[in-house]
Design a protein around this nucleic acid. Sequence first.
DNA 1: GGGAGACCTAGTAA
DNA 2: ATTACTAGGTCTC
Length: 406
Amino acid sequence: MLQSNQSVASLTKLRIMKRKTSSQPASSTPPSSPHQSPHFPVKLNSIFASKKPKNILKNSPAITTKASGEWVPLSIGKSELYLPLTFPTGQTFRWKETGPLQYTGVIGPHLVSLKQLENGDVGYHFHHTECEESARLALFDFLNLGISLSEIWEEFKVSDLRFCELASYLEGARVLRQDPLECLIQFICSSNNNIGRITKMVNFLSSLGKYLGNVGGYDFHQFPEINRLAMVSETELREAGFGYRAKYIIGTVEALQSKPSGGLQWLAALRKLNLEEAVDALASLPGVGPKVAACIALFSLDQHHAIPVDTHVWQIATQYLIPELSGTRFTPKLCSRVADAFVCKYGKYAGWAQTLLFIAELPSQKAILPSRFCDAEKVKPAKSKERKKGAHNARSRSMDGNENVM
DNA sequence: GGGAGACCTAGTAA
DNA sequence: ATTACTAGGTCTC
């Protein structure tokens, strides 16, 4: 039953690094046969220097060379990255499932496929890129490989038995490091919305960017620059199905254009702020409230303890962290209370812990977890009705088992 | 500063 | 079959 859900395509994001102009679009089919080829060079110290856990790539053997048609192994293993728990779980709406255990997306100007190899490792393949080296760096950065998932999970496991048990079934649920602009726009689209529709909206905006190629029947584009986004009218967006979010997109794009340092710079600078400052800055943009801001902060701004609180996270929190509030109704005022509870329990990387707990609540995952993880039914607030099957809130990342986006 | 209602759509219930 | 209502996050009043 996991499969049906995984058909949800996810998309990606690019890094905030300078965009390279890429050359001719490539129409290619992802390689089909995993190939044990050499490892890649690992010169990421400067990039990841500030990260806490040791760089999991640090000791990887150097080498490289990848012939097209091959999967180049990342040599990190499933415990560090398991694609089905990372890409189609609501962090990004730009990556597509293009094969069994295979996902394709765009990182900056690079079109790349990732595949879980038979030995558990993840292999990558660039379909379209001008510079292999910068593509590789962009990929490592996007995958947040400067952070050891297994290392921070160890700490969660020690302090939380339930996390420990879940982790053994849901290995490799990693938090990505997306491009802030892409992340911002995607999550503005996500507000009060369901995954199928969000994906359509994001696809529409993405198609305004430079075409990079087709993989598995899906067209891939570089995410459009701010000035390109600014050329779209609210009317066009509404006709494309954005609803009232159309004006949010327009307003946010205008706000970014008006930043003295430029929108991209302004967004990039948020990575240097503390969480509260970053969230406040983001919330100054139309269409960005506490929840969307937390998503952007966690998924693109290195704010590892950001907790996107929605009704589903509220359920998790009242069930396991603050049972004294169980049965009460969620109000915005309680947002910080929930976030604090997560940080208090899990610390600096609370957002990463919360991501796993969230995924464990997805119908697709519950289906493969032992029943003891499912019997603890949520205590619903008096006024709340049964949860619907269809429309799920975005952050509810694939909450919908029936979701069939593409 | 907190609460209520509007916004938009898809899915569900009546 | 149509209609009424619902969730979901942000904004406005």
